[in-house]
Design a protein around this nucleic acid. Structure first.
Lengths: 230, 230
DNA sequence: ATTTTACCAATACAGTGTATCGCAACAGTA
DNA sequence: TACTGTTGCGATACACTGTATTGGTAAAAT
């Protein structure tokens, strides 16, 4: 019995780890959105059965948590920025850009507390940039307020972007000309201020709008940091 | 053959309308969260088969849209408030309270453009309160910035609330004492600022925190409304 | 060499959103 | 009153989901 007669030894299945699982899930989500991520499809990308994943995660939600934390590695700034304002601003913009790259993140942002190592590192960097500029409560309020803003702003931006993509029209064209429902509603005359806004408003670049709102909020934070509360 | 011999006429199924469907869906979501809402269960509440619903909605997402708009009826303020600041503030607080009553709303808030009649009425009321105080672009920026803030803040508040409920602990106790993962992370010493924040931070009431951040932002808006941009 | 342990694939289950199809009750006509 | 056309509902069906359970098989331990 030569070697050639004997079959190859039954190759032990390629080893798995969370990193590869998460990478596969992110790839799927990048291509087809969050709803394209099923445990079966993730496993298939790794030439494994679905149940295999349960050694590494115990529920699908946990997989989402891992995905979110993985993206936070992209968000973490590579160098310590100059002042607190720059720190908060770049954090916001990096989060926005990461979400534009991984649009499924918009569906998860703010949906659960983020306790992964990368997310904690991002929080740490932010807090460090504000350390000592005011009492702790004020600092926390500042970080949370800014965070609430960009979370909400990014979510809306992605939501609009999807709506535009679904109709193939730019937002304003869609609102103005075709959106038949909105048009009908506005024509009822029950929404005069809204009508004026839709018809007279100039189309603003999403990034600029994001940056402007952010600057407003940073102005407010600056005022509070300068004058610690009574 | 008397009346008594004849059977009752085969009762035509109770008529349906969107209102009843949405009410049933909201009831289910209030009890068991968004994931408890399935077309089969909604239909069962109305003594109907699942397919019956497709005469009134054409997809489950549309049902969610209707639910969101229905809650906006609770958000719409009953009377025109005094000044713009009061208008924006009460709008934010009413949205927050509606979300505390219908916590599933947190999962939907900001997830899609809201074009229902009630949502439009809310937007109209808000825009009307700001009408004429500045150029249209500034007004829009103000409304969107405030909206982004409370959307994000409410989402995080609900997310934390759920996490606390899942462990049965208050947020700080959970962070400080038991949250084993977080504890281990902080003990690595890689997150000094975060560690200080967790250990030295005072536990703040969620509503107060929400209101404070909101006031900061309203301050910023006030500054921009007063001095229209160059 | 034999037993124990650990892990992986297969199977199974209850449930999901939605397409399709056939029937039954109403409306309109003769 | 008899018939027909249309509408809308129910049942069935399909492809898929997340996850519990089970049984076999390969590595580790004795």
């Amino acid at each position: 019995m030569t070697v050639w007669d004997r079959p190859e030894p039954p190759t032990r299945p390629a080893p798995l780890d969370r990193e590869r699982i998460v990478a596969a899930a992110i790839a799927l989500a990048d291509e087809g959105g969050l709803e394209a991520v099923s445990l079966r499809k993730v496993a298939a990308r790794l030439d494994a059965g679905p149940m295999r994943l349960y050694g590494y995660i115990s529920t699908k939600e946990e997989l989402f948590d891992l995905m979110v934390d993985e993206v936070h590695a992209e968000i973490l700034p590579e160098e310590q920025p100059g002042d607190w304002r720059e720190a908060l601003r770049t954090h916001a913009h990096r989060t926005r850009q990461a979400t534009l790259r991984h649009q499924w993140l918009a569906d998860l942002l703010g949906g659960r507390p983020t306790l992964g190592p990368n997310a904690l590192a991002v929080t740490e960097a932010t807090l460090a940039a504000l350390d000592g500029l005011a009492d702790l409560d004020t600092v926390m309020r500042a970080v949370e307020t800014v965070g609430a803003y960009y979370t909400g702003a990014i979510r809306r931006e992605i939501a609009n972007l999807r709506a535009e993509r679904a109709t193939g029209l730019s937002k304003r064209d869609w609102q103005r000309a075709s959106g038949p429902h909105l048009r009908k509603m506005l024509d009822t005359g029950r929404f005069p201020a809204l009508t004026k806004a839709v018809y007279d408003g100039t189309e603003v670049d999403a990034e600029e709008s994001f940056a402007t709102g952010l600057d407003w909020i940073l102005d407010a934070v600056a005022a509070k940091l300068a004058r610690p509360p009574a």
